[in-house]
Amino acid sequence: MSDPEVPPHTEDGQRASPTVPEVLPQPDDGQPTTPGGPELPPQSDDWQRVSPKYVGVELVSAAIGALVLCGITVPFIVLGTWFGWPALSLAVVIGVLNLAFAPRRVRSIGYRLRADDLVFRRGIMFHRRVSVPYGRMQLIDINRGPVARALGLAELKFVTAAAATGVSIPGLVESDADALRDRLVGLAESRRIGL
């Protein structure tokens, strides 16, 4: 398996310098690996972003989180403790910051389909990047939360034999998610390895 030297990607998700997309050795079982996935970008070393609509999901969850945080402080205000109001203002500040950074956070989510592995990254403050070889994927889930479903989005979750892997790509357009799932299952099948 020849590995092209991966160009160093830039941290903020800008497209890496254009390289010739490596032609993937297709699984030779005659099945197309991307059934109904014309909108899916070709295999490449570029970072793929999730749908901008996913900001909606993030905003809703951030808003709920902020409300809960504020709600916790209410009893202290009612009881008249000295830290009631400061706690509330802190909660508001945290909530607003959280909401304000939602688009930035969504932009930080990215995945990259390389020749032999999937690289996933997310987070600005708590940045993490995970590489999962295709052959290691044991199963792939598609989850849809209520807000995501209203926006026509889905989440793709990968399970390997290691519980800690925990890679899930949120905010994929549903048809993309299905296509990506089928493609990844095909890739996993063609590179099936033991445990």
């Binding site: 403050m125 708590f126 993490r128 995970v130 999962v132 070889p133």
Partner: peptide, 28 residues
Amino acid sequence: ARVQSLRLTRRPLHRALRLSELTVHTVA
């Protein structure tokens, strides 16, 4: 041959000190 996945983590303090945490995932 037994690596399930790799993870690179950068927390705020990591970022400030230009550090990263590296984890090799295997079965439990």
